[in-house]
Nucleic acid binder design. Structure first.
Lengths: 341, 341
DNA sequence: CTGGCAATTGGAAGCGCTTCCAGCTTTCGC
DNA sequence: GCGAAAGCTGGAAGCGCTTCCAATTGCCAG
């Protein structure tokens, strides 16, 4: 049984033990040619015997590559990351990085200090690249991120313009799917519960809603903001009902608000879907838990994270990948059932 | 308007500009004494003018401190991190680290490569410390983590023994609360839906369940494993009902399984809570969404993350903090309403 | 004024690794 | 067999920062 050494062995010790130069040892470690098979074997043996693990910090300093990327969630509300959406994105990001040698640094920039950190990251080369999410309209980070020479890939579009690299879901198209489904079901008095106006995704979903209605010649029976929260959705539904009791279909810009709407509808004695059909957006776990289970626009959240990481890796390697808009589709459940016949 | 320089300014350039030695400049940057006020001011000015940001990699190499900690989730199922539980923990961890200068590296060790990475982290000093979560019974990482000289703090106990540093929730106590609540409500035929037997938290919750029953002189009406998933909980409930149709109270080791149980009960025409009362464990968002809203054992997940990070930071600073067991409490909702009178 | 002590100062030696470069050894076509 | 192309090799120069240590300076009591 070998006692683990107090101090990590260094490349020099490996080289000494293998009887080669440090240069040769380094070449073996990094799988670079120009090393004879004999020396290669000797080094590999020494590595094994010593339990050598390269020091990533030293390597980073010498290569000027950090070996890590940052996933930053810039938000005003502390704990936004607790939203399952981000957890799912993170899983996707991680699943891609797993194949690479990049580490994932998570930065929840929801405090002044956090924002300051993010700013420093943009101006120091402490990392190889940045994935930036949840940038709101008035967030100066959007612009800053454009100016740096650090590779930055956006998850979801910022409102400040179209960045060079981003991955987004087809929010507008998804919203249209929702409306079309409701209309096909014979619903004519459609209302929408929207999210924050300073989030591009919320705006796009509202646009899609309005577009689709226009296309079918209908007018919105109401549009109320719900702030992307369950409570907000509930309150919005209250207002909509008060204004137009004849609403027979509701599209909420996310599932949480749809759940709130369900609650409000139930309290008002409206049956779902008989009296009012409800469609959400996201298709995360809660949509399935809902009563009745929620028909909702599915966006491929995990894939979004994976593509985000893939794109960033490509940019880091000097490529110039095209932006990506992932398709959304409708997951039909009971809150707005399939149109029979 | 200053054009951002292609290359980051270095400490040498700052020193040169300020007309001092590099040593002095370093002292100013690090707020170390032994620098005259005049030089200090000069350096600070140069820093400002050059937009100097220290290179963390170089600093790490020189100080032999990485400036980062790793939060690792070791699991067999890819995507376990998508469970809102971990997102919540992460928010807590991040909220503590926000006050420090430590970066958060996230490692989702749910693949062979991921596990290998984790192993390397344990044996290389690429990071200053590790928070380890979701270690299962047969996971060799538990033992490995004990042997390294890297500071390791456990989130939740591993099954392989009691580590020196950990933060856990009072799972046993929480389970007892659940049982006591049900018994006080007059329920006599209590069943439990358990989680994986190789997760300490699941075991502790089952222990608490059995203990509490013993204390009240009752015998379990059934115990069925549900694998911590909604579908598993549903199936478990089916089996329990088939075996003992007279069950009038169910305790599920987490909320997801409780939701599954609700579904099964509904299908079998059992009213909740009139016929059967249901209590879950976790008190995450889904408990609130449930129909009826779920009475559940609340564990302070975010606080757990925060304390995890705080403890690790303490260990890194050379202290020897005591393990921490955070209290759980019952959140009473409709699936097992308060006992009137 | 002067000795002595404390506070400042900066040169230099690393931290552990990569990589340029110049010198050597093989190998092979002819 | 010979010259040159094609690999090997390892010395040495960094990557940008911290910190030990010896030397210098400043200050005050005697």
């Amino acid at each position: 049984m070998e006692t683990s050494p107090r101090r990590q062995p260094t490349l020099d010790e490996v080289a000494a033990r293998a009887g080669v130069s440090r240069t040769a040892a380094s070449r073996v470690i990094n799988n670079v040619p120009h090393v004879s098979a004999a020396k290669r074997a000797a080094v590999e043996r020494a590595v094994r015997e010593l339990g050598y693990v390269p020091n990533p910090t030293a390597r980073a300093l010498a290569t000027r590559r950090a070996g890590s990327v940052v996933l930053a969630v810039s938000s005003e509300e502390p704990g936004l990351f607790a939203d399952p959406f981000f957890a799912e994105v993170t899983v996707g990001v991680s699943s891609f990085l797993d194949r690479t040698d990049l580490e994932l640094v998570l930065l929840l920039a929801d405090t002044p200090r956090g924002k300051e950190r993010l700013r420093r990251i943009l101006s120091s080369h402490r990392t190889d690249g940045l994935m930036l999410m949840a940038v709101r309209g008035d967030d100066p980070l959007g612009r800053l991120a454009e100016e740096t020479d650090l590779p930055v890939v956006f998850g979801g579009l910022p409102m400040t313009g179209t960045p060079r690299w981003y991955v987004d879901a087809d929010n507008r198209g998804g919203a249209r799917l929702a409306v079309e489904h409701l209309v096909r079901d014979g619903r004519r008095n459609l209302a929408m519960i929207t999210g924050q106006v300073d989030l591009q995704a919320a705006v796009a979903r509202e646009q899609g809603f309005r577009e689709a209605l226009l296309l079918t010649g209908l007018t919105p029976a109401g549009v109320a903001p719900g702030g992307f929260t369950q409570a907000g959705g509930e309150a919005a539904m209250e207002r909509l009902l008060a204004d137009r009791p004849d609403i027979d279909g509701v599209f909420a810009a996310n599932d949480d608000m749809a759940l709130g709407a369900l609650r409000a509808l139930r309290r008002h004695g409206r049956r779902v879907p008989e009296d009012v059909a409800v469609v959400g957006f996201d298709d995360l776990a809660s949509a399935l838990y809902a009563d009745p289970p929620l028909t909702t626009v599915h966006q491929p959240v995990r894939a979004l994270g994976l593509e985000l990481a893939r794109m960033l890796a490509a940019v880091i390697e000097g490529q110039d990948p095209s932006p990506l808009v992932l398709p959304t589709r409708l997951t039909v459940r009971e809150s707005a059932p399939p149109v029979s016949g």
